[in-house]
Write a protein that binds this DNA or RNA. Structure first.
Length: 436
RNA sequence: GCGACCAUAGCUCAGUUGGUUAGAGCACUAGAUUGUGAUUCUAGGGGUCGCGGGUUCGAAUCCCGUUGGUCGCCCCA
């Protein structure tokens, strides 16, 4: 056992696992670019106050925080939202709207490890600033679906549950709740899926008993799965706000339907995402088979840029975590061997042939091909074995007899066939083979 | 912060009521094979049995502690 180990909750990425992680990142980045999002980055270390301002003092217990040598209270970032709000807020008047940004970076949380959860993890974050209408939600949910589909997942593998804190507030208001009671009830609704009826105890302990009818109306609301059901129940109410909000729902679901994404999205008002800063639509993506944590989550947070010192600026965003994502892809067999293989492996007879091979190897590498060769002298059998194990598509054989005639042999590693080509045409032959 | 289970080679694991120098398969390296990838055979490297203490003539084995891991609870931005 080595004397030094990695810190608890921190992963190490040997080439095979880094290849898988890069595969995720590559797909996410490609999806974001397809949707017109621009990539940004920012410091991994931030002022502790940035997170306290957003989440309250109690957040400190879950942070990697410390005092730096200049006496500053700092923390490794546990999330991207405060940072991106600061970036956007600082230049809000100079940035073209809508502002569509994304990032793929590491985060740190001082938590106990669990399945799909560690102390250092990566997230894909995407946000739209400057659009108050539900078109921003359409664009982001579309991107979220694409990020997962791009990895090979289908509507049979995952779905997005769409909910709305505004809808809840209007509904609860119509049932006679005041603002404080409504917030308390949202906390209970957040737990309803796991605790069932016991979740209401969270509310009744703080705000007193519920009328049986009221509780029934809330449970009925929680059971809504489709837009027609929602329309039917909202239609019974005379709340103007409630029916106005229904128009936003029609726009979001209608837009996603027009994008061909209806199979990926369900109405599910059981999602409220405990965070107090969400102000409207909220959504989470889940594995359909359901034994994993949420794959992704997000929502609208129209007040946060202003709260963190910027101008008032509407915003919607979501994040996908890499750990649960990788578990799901693993379960579905969507993470094949992704280690980069060489295009060409040079098989070299001896010391003199090596110098000839070096010239060609350098030529091919400069042209952008992935080329490998043995660093030591080895028998031909061993060299071919290495070429096959590395996954090379072509072996180029530098033998004394061939070089004397000014040729090399190109071996198709899959077909086990060889052709001789003049060395002067070697690069063209490689190009033709690999592009065929 | 709380709880359960686990810890022997890089990996998966065996190891007898506590008893000689701790084993196997896979993987890795080399050779059989000095111009062609398989198979096979042979050999080799790799362990303070997670760490510390205790019981004992003797501990991988039993006891206590500790560290780490896995999984749950709390939380989940």
């Amino acid at each position: 056992m080595a004397s030094f180990q990695s810190l608890p909750g921190f992963r190490e990425f040997y080439p095979e696992s880094l290849a898988r992680r890069n595969h995720l990142f590559r797909c996410w980045r490609q999806s974001a670019h397809a949707y017109g999002f621009l990539e940004y980055d920012a410091p991994v270390l931030e002022s502790l106050d940035l997170y306290k301002a957003k989440s309250g003092d109690e957040i400190e217990g879950q942070l990697f925080s410390f005092t730096d040598k200049g006496g500053r209270e700092v923390a490794l970032r546990p999330e991207m939202t405060p940072t991106v709000c600061r970036l956007v807020g600082a230049k809000a008047n100079a940035l073209k709207r809508p502002i569509k940004w994304f990032s793929i970076v590491d985060f740190f949380r001082y938590e106990r490890m669990q399945k799909g959860r560690g102390r250092c993890f990566a997230q894909f974050n995407a946000d739209i600033f400057g659009e108050a209408g539900p078109e921003a939600e359409i664009e982001l949910i579309g991107l979220l679906v694409q990020c997962l589909r791009g990895l090979g997942l289908t509507a049979d593998d995952f779905y997005v549950r769409l909910s709305d804190r505004n809808l809840w507030f209007y509904y609860l208001e119509a049932l006679g709740f005041d603002a404080d009671q409504a917030r308390g009830m949202l906390g209970a609704i957040d737990k309803f899926e796991r605790l069932g009826d016991d979740a209401f105890k969270i509310y009744t302990d703080a705000h007193g008993e519920l009328a049986a009818d009221t509780k029934g109306r809330i449970v009925e609301f929680l059971g809504i799965k489709t837009l027609p059901q929602l329309e039917a129940i909202v239609g019974q109410s005379d709340s103007v706000e409630l029916s106005a909000r229904l128009d936003d729902w029609r726009r979001v679901l209608g837009g996603l339907n027009a994008m061909g994404l209806a199979a990926f999205v369900t109405v599910d008002l059981g999602v409220v995402r405990g965070l107090a800063y969400y102000t409207g639509f909220v959504f989470e993506a889940f594995d359909r088979k359901g034994d994993l944590r949420a794959l992704a989550g997000g929502g609208r947070y129209d007040d946060l840029v202003g709260k963190l010192g910027g101008p008032a600026l509407p915003a919607v965003g979501f994040a996908i975590g890499d750990m649960t994502m990788e578990l799901l892809l693993e379960q579905r067999g969507l993470l094949p061997n992704l280690v980069v293989a060489p295009d060409v492996y040079a098989v070299i007879a001896g010391a003199e042939e090596r110098l000839a091979a070096f010239a060609d190897i350098n030529l091919l590498r400069a042209a952008g091909y992935r080329v490998d060769y043995p660093l030591r002298e080895l028998g031909f059998g061993k060299q071919f074995k290495h070429a096959a194990e590395l996954g090379a598509r072509i072996a180029i054989i530098y033998g004394g007899e061939e070089l004397a005639r000014g040729v090399v042999k190109l071996r198709d590693m899959n077909k086990r066939e060889e052709v001789e080509v003049p060395r002067s045409q070697m690069a063209e032959a490689v190009r033709d083979f690999l592009s065929a």
